[in-house]
Write a protein that binds this DNA or RNA. Structure first.
Ligand code: FES
Ligand code: FES
Lengths: 134, 134
DNA sequence: AGTAAAGCAACTGGAAAAGTTACGTATGAC
DNA sequence: GTCATACGTAACTTTTCCAGTTGCTTTACT
């Protein structure tokens, strides 16, 4: 799979599940559908479970299920659940650096935070059920 | 050096140079100052030269110099010169995919493009001379 | 008991980026 | 004219990040 694909995998899977909410799916099924590996699926969906978007059950007839109405799960929820930040934050450099570099960091970080915020806001305007035309 | 450091290196160097514009610096000096390698510096600054932000001269007493007044070089100029895009665009997936996935791509890509645009706009509001309190 | 699922930890492999080495080319000093 | 110096570039090496994989454990249903 390609780089930074966790978000793609998560969104794809949730959108798919939004089609028949309540239905249980195994990580193997999901992996096959998404062209990847069950363990990778569990890793990603595990994050979504921690965020309260999904539930999982072990054992026979276990699997994954939406924890909420698909209308109540936004793209931002998914984005935030995987704690990647798309707007690459060049986080505090190891060496504190001089005043010039410090000022630079401040300025750039400030802008990036703003941008990140507006990204989340925009993503929050769409639910996973809307995406599939539902 | 850490990942995705090209922008950091470029901004740091230009901000530094904005302190005494007109002065020539060698890639060795810059590399030493930034804690990296002259070849890496030349790679990064080469991009800035292509974008018309810097000039370089070979030979004895050669080196790098700002091509414009530091007031006329914005953070956006630098960002765009290195053609990385910070807002990770999950570009068209190899397999065209079904309608659900397609709709998803459309939606997300649209938002990301918007965000990228506003990032550049915001970065364009600050010049490298402002950053150093000049 | 047996089977099927998630959970988890550790290892493997490939790709991207930084870093390095080596050599060519241009330019000013002498 | 020669030499030192600096950029330009290509090729190679090293590092780092992640997806992918394997193997084992735990849980729950039949
Ligand atoms: S460390 Fe201050 S300008 Fe470079
Ligand atoms: S929902 Fe997965 S390919 Fe269409």
């Amino acid at each position: 799979m390609k780089r930074n694909s966790r978000l793609s995998l998560a969104l794809h899977t949730l959108s798919h599940m939004a089609g028949s909410p309540g239905r249980v799916r195994t990580s193997s099924d999901i992996a096959e559908h998404a062209g990847t590996n069950p363990v990778v699926v569990r890793r990603v969906l595990g994050k979504l479970r921690e965020a309260g978007l999904l539930t999982s059950e072990k054992g026979h007839a276990g699997g994954w299920r939406l924890a909420r109405e698909p209308q109540n799960i936004t793209l931002a929820d998914v984005y935030l659940a995987l704690d990647e930040r798309m707007v690459a934050t060049n986080e505090a450099s190891e060496t504190p650096a001089c005043s010039v570099e410090h000022a630079l960091q401040e300025r750039v970080s400030g802008v990036l935070e703003e941008i990140e915020e507006s990204l989340v806001k925009r993503l929050g305007e769409t639910s996973i059920s809307e995406v599939r035309g539902g």
